[in-house]
Write a protein that binds this DNA or RNA. Structure first.
Lengths: 166, 166
DNA sequence: GGCGCCATGTAAACCGTTACATGATTCA
DNA sequence: TGAATCATGTAACGGTTTACATGGCGCC
């Protein structure tokens, strides 16, 4: 249950449904992590069994009813304990980097294409992050976007330098 | 078998044992991916069943004998096909970023400690990457280290900016 | 003597995505 | 009419780490 603290952390902010959590992760937390419904719903169920969250079923007009989860004291204590532990190392899987490394003996024009395609997709991501940033009003949400923005820019600069070594 | 192409790509360079592969990933490819023995050995076995690699048992003096794997034509073809496909998106899990986000309401001195600890570990990583880089003589190996170096530097700069918003 | 490296492997447990199943509403 | 969004969930499959099991050699 490795998305346990992701869920607990979000519920500490405000009560949410599984669907809401998924959207929030997609919209705001994507530079930090990713989590699909298939993970999120079971995590919520197990957290409920543990007594870390409460559920309340809420009917809505013209919409399916939703289950709104909120933190219990136990859940808050669990979150606080986690917050005071040193963070785990980042885990990454960068297929592009691996492919570039193994592609080194391909003809130069193919390598160039690989680099340019990466630059284009990274620029597109950079643009969408800029757009995202403009919509944010809270400092700590900016921290996250700014992190992603910095890494994107660093990668674009690096791609240019790699291209120059060809 | 998602480490299939990692193994195939390394064996295209030179024949290697499972142990060698693990070390190479740890030493050189760590910015791109990670793979433990528990994944690598089964992948080699399945690749052998598929006919993508050959094995040769090599006795050594004062050492356990090793199984040296090499690419077959089929394995090379598999690798070439993969190389011409567009790369998958990077997958990341950044616990620190998540923790920072959820820690935003902690007392300022605790937040500062979190940021400073991160800066210290990132600087340590930066230093070891610099040392690593000095030992490398091949351009494409430098690409990988330089990538990691750029991202580390970008993160350190970002950490400084975050600190200034407190 | 103990630690760490070389070297191979398995098993259990856990994690995680994808696809599937359902169904109402809104908007083009 | 068809697609997207809201909303919950399960099942199958596959991936991954961790711990365990084994054992010799070299170094401090």
């Amino acid at each position: 249950m490795s998305h346990k603290y992701l869920v607990l952390g979000l519920l500490a902010e405000q009560p949410m449904s599984g669907y809401d959590i998924r959207k929030y992760v997609e919209d705001v937390l994507h530079p930090a992590t990713n989590a699909s419904y298939g993970t999120l719903y079971p995590v919520l169920h197990r957290l409920h069994d543990e007594g870390a969250v409460d559920v309340r079923e809420v009917d809505q007009d013209n919409r399916p009813s939703k289950k709104v989860y909120s933190l219990t004291d136990k859940g808050q204590a669990l979150l606080d304990a986690w917050l005071h532990e040193p963070p785990d190392d980042d885990k990454v899987r960068r297929e592009f980097l691996l492919k570039l490394y193994f592609a080194r003996n391909l003809p130069e024009d193919e390598l160039l294409t690989l680099l340019e395609q990466r630059r284009d997709t990274t620029r597109a991501l950079l643009d969408s992050l800029h757009a995202e940033r403009d919509e944010l009003d809270e400092t700590h949400q900016r921290w996250i976007v700014d992190y992603a923005l910095s890494l994107c820019q660093a990668e674009i600069d690096w791609l240019q330098r790699v291209k120059e070594t060809l």
